[in-house]
């Protein structure tokens, strides 16, 4: 339920980046894992509301999803897991290490050709 405040934080992160580039901000790319605590659909819905009147007002939000994967220290297998079952898919060991799935990242931004600054 904190997706709007995440969006507001994102916009503050975008400000200094946008200031360095003359083009219009047209795309913002995030990577979000299922164990990040953030719901991609809610973020997608909150973004245009938060971005209104900001540097990202015309930007498209692209969310890359990443799989939930764990590595087992016992059998060294890497397997797919689910948010509430992170056991090794091979041997069932409970003490696995997350290799992917808790990402909450601003990956990249894209600027248009034309200049915004006069």
């Amino acid at each position: 339920m904190h997706e709007l405040s995440i969006c507001q934080g994102l916009l503050r992160q975008l400000l200094p980046i946008a200031a360095k580039h003359p083009g219009r901000l047209i795309q913002v790319v995030l990577r979000i894992g299922p164990l990040s605590g953030v719901e991609a659909a809610l973020l997608q819905a909150a973004f245009p509301i938060a971005a209104k009147g900001s540097v990202a007002a015309e930007a498209e939000l692209v969310i890359e999803h990443c799989p939930l994967r764990v590595r087992c220290p016992l059998c060294d297998a890497e397997s797919e897991a689910s948010a509430n079952d992170l056991r090794c898919g091979d041997c069932g060991n409970q003490q696995t290490r997350l290799t992917s799935g808790d990402e909450l990242l601003l990956l990249s931004v894209q600027f248009s050709e034309e200049s915004n600054h006069v």
């Binding site: 992160q13 580039h21 003359p22 083009g23 990956l107 990249s108 931004v109 894209q110 600027f111 200049s115």
Partner: peptide
């Protein structure tokens, strides 16, 4: 202002909760 590349993708790689 014409010097930075135009129409460019800029890699950022920052946590969204960086603040």
């Amino acid at each position: 202002q014409h010097l930075p590349q135009r129409g460019e993708a800029v890699a950022v790689l920052q946590g969204l909760l960086a603040e």
